[in-house]
Computed example of a mutant assay.
Amino acid sequence: MRIAVVDGQGGGIGRAIVEKLKAALPNVEILALGTNSAATGQMLRAGADDGATGENAIAHNMKSVDVVVGVIAIINANSMMGELSPKMAQAIGESRAYKVLLPINRCNIHVVSVEEVPLSIHLDNAVRTIREYVVNHQGIR
Results as ranks from 00 to 15, higher is better:
M1G: 06
M1H: 12
I3Y: 02
V6T: 06
D7C: 08
D7S: 15
G11W: 06
I13T: 14
A16Y: 00
I17N: 04
I17D: 02
V18D: 04
K20R: 15
L21E: 07
L21S: 04
A23G: 06
A24D: 13
L25G: 05
P26R: 13
N27H: 13
N27V: 04
V28Y: 01
E29Y: 14
E29K: 15
E29D: 11
L31W: 09
L31S: 07
L33K: 05
N36C: 10
S37R: 11
G41S: 15
Q42L: 13
Q42C: 10
M43I: 11
L44K: 13
A46N: 08
A46G: 11
A46F: 13
G47C: 08
G51S: 07
T53V: 15
T53M: 07
G54E: 00
N56H: 10
A57M: 03
I58C: 04
I58W: 03
A59R: 14
H60D: 13
S64N: 15
D66I: 05
V67L: 11
V68R: 04
V69S: 04
V69W: 04
N76L: 10
N78A: 07
S79N: 03
E83I: 09
K87H: 04
K87C: 00
K87E: 08
M88R: 08
A91D: 12
E94C: 12
E94D: 14
S95D: 12
Y98P: 00
K99A: 05
V100R: 04
L102H: 01
L102G: 00
P103D: 01
I104F: 01
N105M: 01
R106F: 01
C107Q: 02
H110L: 03
V111D: 00
S113W: 06
V114H: 00
P118K: 15
L119H: 05
H122A: 08
A126L: 05
V127R: 08
V127E: 08
T129H: 05
T129M: 10
I130E: 10
E132H: 09
Y133Q: 02
V134H: 04
H137P: 03
Q138L: 15
G139W: 07
